[in-house]
Simulated assay, not measured.
Amino acid sequence: MTDPKAAITHLIDVMARLRDPETGCPWDQVQDFPTIAPYTIEEAYEVEDAIARGTPATLLDELGDLLFQVVYHARMAEERGWFAFADVAKAIADKMVRRHPHVFGEEDARTAEQQTAAWEAQKAAERATRQEHGTLAGLPPGLPALTRAAKLTRRAGRVGFDWPDAAAVLDKLEEEASELRAELKTPGQTPDTAALRDEVGDLLFVLANLARKLDLDPEDCLRGANRKFERRFGHIEEALRLEGKMPADVTLDRMEELWLDAKRRERNAG
Rank of each mutant, 00 (worst) to 15 (best):
K95R: 15
D87S: 12
R110N: 06
E126Q: 15
A57M: 02
A128M: 11
Y39P: 02
C25P: 02
P101A: 02
V14T: 08
A137V: 08
E48I: 01
V30K: 15
T55E: 00
D28Q: 12
P56G: 01
R17N: 14
Q131F: 13
G54Q: 00
Q122F: 13
K90P: 03
G138V: 05
A109F: 06
I12E: 08
F85I: 12
F104L: 03
H133I: 14
R53G: 00
D20C: 06
D65C: 04
M76S: 04
H100G: 04
Y39D: 07
Q114H: 08
A121W: 10
L136N: 15
V103E: 11
T135D: 08
E43A: 05
A52T: 00
A84H: 05
E22I: 10
F85N: 03
Q31K: 11
E62T: 02
F104H: 09
R98F: 10
V103Q: 05
H102A: 10
A37C: 09
P26V: 05
H133K: 13
R19V: 08
F83V: 02
T55W: 00
R127N: 15
A109Y: 09
T40I: 11
I51F: 00
A112F: 12
F85V: 09
P140D: 14
D108I: 08
A84G: 14
M15C: 12
I12L: 11
E43C: 03
E126C: 14
T40P: 06
G24A: 06
E22N: 08
A52Q: 00
E42P: 05
H102Q: 12
F68P: 03
F33I: 07
F68E: 02
T40W: 10
H102T: 07
Q114A: 11
F83E: 05
A50K: 00
Q29C: 13
K123C: 13
L139E: 08
A37K: 11
A112Y: 07
W27V: 13
F68R: 06
E48N: 04
P101F: 07
L136P: 10
G24E: 02
K95F: 13
R17T: 13
